[in-house]
Simulated assay, not measured.
Amino acid sequence: MAVPLAILDLDGTLVDQESAAGEWAQQFGSTWSLDSDAVEAISSALAERRPKGEVFAEIVRRFALPVASDDVWTDYRTRMPALVRCTDADRAALIDLRSAGWVVGIATNGMVDNQVGKIRATGLSELVDGWVVSSEIDVRKPEPGIFRELARRLDTALDGWMIGDSLDMDVAGGQAVGLQTAWITTDPASADDPVPTITAASVADAVRVILA
């Protein structure tokens, strides 16, 4: 019998990316004496699902900052690992999966220094069997290659679940490679959205259903 595989997204799924980005925006705004409206605009831009290089170029241009956008992006990647958090309940869920005989991995879009920094700083590196970051293989979710590469690294079949907060990246991507999917959200889906196997408010809630 094949060992089941659980693939999890990182930002917005295992770690609270939005709150951490908001905290970074507050610190950045203080450094550059930006008002609260500017800080809110930066926080909103960071929440968008698009390449962060574009976001930081836009921020520097919009607020006429005398700094290179690449330097701002580097600062963001350097500081974010210390700002993100993973809940105790979600940590326990990962332990439960592995105790039940599952192989557990993380598939995340982003830059290696930032994403691996988060995985290590939160202690997730000790709770999963491995990970893959899009920038190191030049393949992003929802492309099948990133899921296949993670399964290859973990030396296991691509058979199990994809758990994530993005319908387009995680649910649609997981479905394309034959995985069952858990959408982490408290929002309703629209009629045109991919339909996940289950919907849950947190990783812990999803894992309880998966292991039941």
Rank of each mutant, 00 (worst) to 15 (best):
T199G: 11
G110M: 00
A100P: 11
S43W: 05
W24E: 08
Q175A: 15
A100Y: 12
P66D: 13
W102N: 09
W32Q: 09
D193V: 01
A20E: 07
A92T: 09
V103S: 06
G110V: 00
A47Q: 07
D205Q: 05
V55H: 12
A100R: 15
T156D: 07
R79G: 13
M162L: 01
T87N: 01
P142N: 10
V103P: 12
A20F: 02
V112A: 09
A176Y: 09
T78I: 01
V171A: 01
E136A: 05
A200Q: 05
T197G: 08
R152N: 05
T87S: 14
A57F: 00
Q17N: 13
V103A: 11
L211W: 02
P142I: 05
E143H: 14
L211Q: 11
E48I: 14
D16M: 02
G110C: 01
K118E: 05
R77M: 04
G105N: 04
A176H: 15
R49I: 02
A41G: 00
G123I: 02
D75P: 11
D193Y: 08
S166L: 04
V60A: 12
D88K: 07
R152G: 01
F63V: 13
F63G: 15
R153Q: 07
L211I: 15
R50F: 00
G164F: 05
D11E: 10
V84D: 02
L8S: 12
R153P: 06
R140K: 13
R79A: 11
W73H: 12
V84I: 02
T156R: 13
A121E: 11
S36L: 08
D70Y: 05
I42W: 04
R61F: 09
W24A: 10
V132G: 13
S69Q: 09
F56V: 04
T13H: 04
S33D: 14
R50D: 01
S69V: 06
I7G: 12
T181A: 01
V195N: 03
L97K: 03
D35S: 08
T181D: 01
W32H: 15
V60H: 03
D159Y: 04
S134N: 09
T186I: 06
V133K: 11
G173D: 06
L150F: 11
A2P: 15
D37S: 15
S134H: 06
S33G: 10
G29D: 11
D16N: 15
M111I: 09
R120Y: 03
L14V: 04
L8V: 10
A2T: 14
T197R: 02
R152E: 09
R148W: 04
G160Y: 10
Q180I: 00
D193E: 11
V84L: 08
Q26K: 15
M169C: 10
D165Q: 00
E143R: 14
L83C: 00
A2C: 07
A151Q: 07
A82Q: 12
R98G: 10
I106F: 13
M80A: 02
R77F: 11
A189T: 05
V15W: 08
D9A: 07
V177H: 13
V72P: 10
E48V: 14
D35H: 08
L179S: 03
A64K: 15
A204Q: 10
E149F: 07
D90M: 00
T74F: 00
A20M: 11
A93M: 08
E23F: 13
D11N: 10
R62M: 13
F28H: 06
D193F: 00
I184N: 14
R153I: 01
L154Q: 00
R98S: 06
V133P: 12
G145V: 10
P142S: 08
I59T: 06
A176L: 12
